[in-house]
Simulated scan of single mutants.
Amino acid sequence: MGYQQNVELFRNDTKERDLTSDETYSYNPVVHKYDPLVELRPGDCLKTKCVFRSTSKKTTTTFGAGTNDEMCFAIFTYFPAENMHYYCVTWDEVDMLLFDNGVIYGCDYRMLKNESHPERQRLITKVLDNCDPYGGCRTECPAAVAEVRGHPCFSGRLPDYTVSLLSRNPSLEVAKFLAALQSCDCSAAEPPVSPSNGGHSKSITGEVITLMCILGSRFV
């Protein structure tokens, strides 16, 4: 799905240079070599942008590590090795390095993955008892949704990540929960028109941008 990728080096909020610039990206990655070596200083940031095209897909695309998922990785070798994490991954504004035993920003994702956990069941039941997963906004639904969206897993930076996580191979209960959770959301966007109905289709593209900031001097 990915067809463009580039990595930029920023210093003091100013772009220094491109480290990669693959305008036509292939899954057989191009190896970039630097001569002279590139010095990364404390406070420098690497900004990675991946562009996707999913027009050939007939199912929803979610984040993941597969070639058919929405994933954006840039891999570098560097020295010296100290003071660096083994990997650096972000999901939108969610820094995966902040996870501590499954907990981030006050949300325990171990709870969400445990189908029998009382807190997970409370959140799902609250929405399904008050909202319609099949469409239409029930009068009592907004208050129930507001309560659930006050939970750490559904507030701040995490709502989209939580929905994406729950959307991967969901059970019927979770699918209904996610639909009901959005049953009162309004959108002015018109649904796409199928070419088979005499309309036209639109190219669907998306971008993922990740940012890594350097703690100590090193070279790539």
Score class of each variant (00 low, 15 high):
V174W: 03
A179T: 02
G66E: 15
N169W: 05
V103Q: 12
L165T: 07
L19V: 05
V103M: 12
L165M: 10
P133L: 01
V51C: 08
C213H: 10
K47N: 08
T162W: 00
Q182T: 12
L178A: 03
N83S: 11
K202A: 13
A74R: 01
L158D: 01
C72K: 03
E70F: 12
S201M: 10
R218K: 13
E173C: 03
V38P: 10
K15T: 10
E115A: 12
I75R: 03
Y78T: 07
Y161K: 01
R218A: 07
V31Y: 14
M84R: 04
T59Y: 14
V208Q: 05
T14F: 12
V31P: 03
H32C: 05
S217F: 06
T55Y: 09
S171A: 04
D95A: 09
K49G: 04
K176M: 13
F154P: 03
H117A: 06
Y109E: 01
D129R: 01
R53P: 00
C184P: 10
N130M: 02
N12P: 07
P29I: 02
V89M: 14
A144P: 00
G199K: 07
G106F: 06
F154T: 11
N83H: 09
F73I: 13
S194Q: 09
M96S: 13
H200K: 12
L97M: 15
T77Q: 08
F76C: 07
R17K: 15
M71N: 13
G64S: 00
P36A: 03
C88W: 08
G198V: 11
H85A: 07
V148A: 06
G43R: 01
T67W: 09
G102C: 03
S201Y: 08
M71P: 06
N197S: 14
I75G: 06
P118E: 07
S171V: 08
E119W: 04
N68P: 09
D160C: 10
T59F: 14
V38C: 11
D22W: 10
L98A: 14
G216M: 14
Y87I: 06
T162C: 11
N68E: 15
T90Y: 08
I75P: 04
K57Q: 14
Q121D: 11
I104H: 01
E8T: 10
R110P: 05
T125L: 13
D185I: 06
G2Q: 02
F73H: 08
